[in-house]
């Protein structure tokens, strides 16, 4: 057997099925769970994604030990780039302690034993579902998005063979028609999350179901942005400092959500707010969705 073939294998012992975190990565699995051949395949796909900003690279997504639709794409991307020196942050809906974020963080602690953090600026890799951190990211960071449906045209045309042609020909009229129909019906564009963007003036791309509030943060972001869709088997990327425009019309420019309220915990007036129902009498309050940012803001205020 060649060295390459040996490297492709990995040691798996079924005897240990308990999931207790311990010092060092779990010896029953390869570092970061994926076998080396799979990592190489994903690594090559990521490089092509970076070279062709916004283009969805097909990849042979693996069956992961968590369900499709629960972050398997993001997990495979993170597993393919992460090393022992990385510091990992995992968020879901902006928060570090959401159950699925906890579960994914535990998975990486178990399989890599890397340091984790909730502090945005301390992380070298941030895996996210549905939010971009409020704090600006730097060139030394990588933001990994979990993506359910990577194809921005999917709801207009369900067939992959058709949408692929539309991307190839740059035929994006259908998307503009859809947005314009919103304007005709409602007087404004009625898309509030997964709001389509154009990357580097070429591909129309789905930013994943982040609120459109977060779209401006993608534009010329210093951090590398990687997107993984496991079930749909696609990887795409936005290199640092790349132009990312939210689609709009001259007479109906893109605008983000605004709240009349401020965060009731930290007082921030410029963040994305979650609505919390406090009783069954219509009582509600608004708090930051980015839990780390909220804590920092609160600490600074005290």
């Amino acid at each position: 057997m060649t060295q390459a073939a040996q490297n492709a294998g990995m040691q798996v012992d079924q005897s240990d099925v308990t999931g207790e975190a311990k010092a060092g990565p779990d010896p029953h699995y390869n570092f970061a769970y994926l076998d080396e051949q799979t990592k190489r395949m994903i690594r090559r796909a990521i490089l092509k994604g970076v070279a062709i900003p916004g283009y969805q690279v097909p990849f042979a997504s693996r069956e992961m030990p968590m369900p499709y639709g629960w972050g398997t794409g993001g997990v495979q991307v993170t597993a393919s780039i992460i090393g022992p020196d990385d510091v990992l942050k995992v968020i879901d809906q902006g928060a570090d302690d959401t159950t699925n974020a906890v579960s994914i963080r535990q998975f990486f602690v178990r399989t890599t034993d890397v340091e984790t953090t909730t502090h945005t600026e301390e992380a070298s890799i941030i895996q996210t579902r549905h939010r971009i951190p409020e704090q600006n990211l730097s060139e030394d960071q990588i933001l990994v998005y979990q993506v359910p449906i990577p194809e921005p045209l999917r709801f207009l045309e369900p067939r992959e063979s058709e949408t692929r042609k539309m991307h190839a020909l740059g035929e994006y009229g259908l998307m503009h028609v859809k947005l314009y129909e919103d304007i005709a019906t409602h007087g404004h564009i009625a898309t509030t999350y997964a709001y389509p963007v154009k990357v580097n003036g070429h591909y129309i791309m789905d930013p994943s179901p982040t609120p459109k509030f977060d779209n401006p943060k993608m534009h010329r972001m210093p951090a590398l942005q990687l997107f993984g869709a496991g079930r749909e088997k696609r990887i795409y990327a936005i290199p640092p400092h790349t132009a990312v425009y939210s689609l709009d019309f001259e007479d109906h420019p893109f605008e983000v959500q605004q709240w009349e309220q401020s965060c009731e915990i930290c007082g921030a007036g410029d963040t994305f707010l979650d609505e919390v129902v406090t009783d069954d009498q219509g009582g509600r309050m608004f708090v930051c969705s980015d839990s780390d940012h909220c804590n920092r803001h609160q600490e600074a205020a005290e």
């Binding site: 879901d92 809906q93 959401t98 699925n100 999350y193 609120p211 994305f272 979650d274």
Partner: peptide, 14 residues
């Protein structure tokens, strides 16, 4: 089944 996961942020937007 991923519909069981939190969707606070998209729901808030809607």
């Amino acid at each position: 089944e991923h519909l069981k996961l939190p969707h606070y942020v998209d729901f808030q937007s809607e």
